[in-house]
Amino acid sequence: MAAETASPTASPVAWLSGLVRRTAFAVRVSLSRRDGRATLGLVAVAYFVLYSVGLGHLGRAGGAAVRGGTGGSAPVLDLFVVSDPLLTATRRVAPFQYEPVALLTVGPIEYLFAPVNAVLGLGLAGLVGVTLAVSVVAWRGPSACRIGAGAGAAAGLPGLLSGFVCCGPTILLVIGIQASAGVLAVLQWFLPLAVASLFVTLLWVGSRVDPDTVR
């Protein structure tokens, strides 16, 4: 394959093209297998849930202030939609955070639906899931695969962190770092950096997979 023959210094375009083709092939092969699809599904769902929790969009309904009282029991299923969802959905409230357009309450769980953030979360979830799926398939394959289990963890970490930094400085309270102009500037760039690092990790994982051993 081109990735094996082209040199990154002598012919960078051919080398990169070969790398992408090889990675795409590894992804296709991985997702054709049941363990690959299962990994993608589980990881993507888990990531999206964590991302939504990190944003504060998903969690337990009610709180200390609104428990009890005289309002009666809360409905099992409730949906509130803002008056102008289309306009509201595109209103940015912070870097990579957009205004929610609906609040869905299902029993003890409530979910704030912000369409742009849902797309961002699903995109990140898909990237992390695909990378881990390729890693798992390669790891479970014959020893000829030149990849270890550590690659999977490496693939997931930046994406997970990016999900939590989306909730802004409140994450700093959890990890005990005081915000400064520098820290906040870094936080603003964390999500695109995470997306970039996920692509790089995916290409790296894909380049390490020998297609012949994972068919």
């Binding site: 309904a61 200390a64 929610p100």
Partner: peptide, 30 residues
């Protein structure tokens, strides 16, 4: 209010009983 918010969820902590940011000796900003 016209906005979709999880009003039962205080992003910083809780006052009754007190907890989270409202009880911590640290601050988020200098």
């Amino acid at each position: 209010t016209g906005y979709a918010r999880r009003y039962g969820n205080d992003p910083y902590g809780v006052y009754a009983p007190i907890g989270g940011y409202y009880a911590a000796d640290e601050t988020m900003f200098p």
